[in-house]
Amino acid sequence: MTDGPPLIVTRPEPGNAATVERARVMGFDVHAMPLFDARAIDWSPPKPADFDVLLLTSAFAARLAGPGLAGLASLPAYAVGAATARAAEAAGLTVAMTGSSCAQRLLDDMTSENIHNILWLCGRDRSEFDARAASLTALPCYAVDPAPVPGEWDALIAAPAILLVHSARAAQRISQLVGDSRAHLSLVAISPAVAAAAGDGWRDLAIAGHPDDVAILAQARALWHKGAK
């Protein structure tokens, strides 16, 4: 597959390296172009008795929360995506449900089970969700900051390429970086919300069927075959 358009992976580490390795095994001409860096921030765990469940929408919450996460281990965890669920379990949490779509869909499923008080362990910069009749308390434990644009970026996006986008903030930054010169670029988003944040004008805009690497790389492979024709 290396004779087709290159694949650009924009997510932060350590996820970037994992995606790059999977893509390389699949035969992509893959390039690691992380546009953000993730880091832990100070936080204090509340009393778990004040909440029914713990919501995790990113694996970073489990990876970067630090020792304070142990104080919330009594709460059943609800995770968006298999990677987040794996990170939660590795951190000592018990995962009650893994959402196979987006955070809003998982929240809808949670509130339909009469879950009333949700503690959302999240990033400093985050999307807004509708918790319906439940109470959703956001508790930031990490931050994802813009990283310097990699040196190869301009050359890679000057020609046809496929970009993988794992967050709405990444989609917005990519949109700003490429400007109006995007008709030759294809983009694969991890969710409908991420695709919406990318805007219009791309050669192709595809959405992964599930919020995980398997699904996003499957869509990338379909676009690769289309671009290689």
Rank of each mutant, 00 (worst) to 15 (best):
D125C: 09
A96H: 05
S127Q: 15
A155F: 04
I115E: 11
S127I: 13
D154Q: 12
H116M: 14
I157E: 00
R126N: 06
A90G: 07
D108W: 06
A82N: 08
G92S: 04
D130I: 02
A103I: 05
E89P: 05
D108F: 05
E152A: 15
T98D: 09
A90E: 14
D154S: 08
D130H: 02
Q104V: 02
R105P: 00
A91E: 09
P150N: 01
A90F: 00
A131W: 10
F129G: 13
H116P: 09
N114E: 07
T94Y: 15
P140Y: 06
P148I: 04
C122Y: 07
T111Q: 14
A147G: 03
L121K: 13
L93N: 11
Y142I: 07
A147I: 06
A85C: 15
V149H: 01
E113W: 12
L106D: 04
L93K: 10
I118K: 10
P140K: 10
F129D: 02
R86L: 13
Y142R: 05
S100M: 00
V149N: 01
S135H: 07
L156Y: 06
A90H: 12
V144Q: 10
I118P: 04
F129M: 06
G123W: 12
E128V: 13
D125I: 14
E128K: 11
A90L: 11
I118F: 07
I115G: 07
S100W: 00
A87S: 13
D145W: 08
R105Y: 01
W153K: 03
A131C: 10
P146R: 06
A159H: 00
A82T: 15
A147H: 02
R126P: 08
T94H: 07
R105F: 03
A158S: 12
A82G: 03
D130G: 04
L139Y: 02
D154L: 00
A133F: 12
A138H: 06
R132Q: 14
H116R: 13
P148Q: 01
E128R: 15
R124W: 08
R105A: 08
M110T: 01
A131M: 08
P150E: 01
P146E: 10
P140M: 07
Q104N: 08
G99S: 07
V144W: 05
L106P: 02
A83Y: 03
A103E: 01
R105W: 00
D154G: 09
E113Q: 14
D154T: 01
L139E: 11
L93F: 13
A85M: 02
R126L: 13
N114A: 11
A83H: 05
L93T: 11
T111V: 09
A155S: 14
A134I: 04
A87F: 06
T111C: 10
C102Q: 10
G123T: 03
D109R: 06
E128S: 09
D109H: 05
S135C: 07
C122M: 15
L136F: 02
E113V: 04
D108N: 11
A103T: 09
T94R: 14
A83D: 14
C122S: 13
C122W: 15
S127N: 15
A87R: 14
A133V: 15
A133W: 15
R132K: 12
D108G: 14
T98P: 01
E128D: 15
S100Y: 01
P140S: 08
A88Y: 14
T111M: 09
N114M: 12
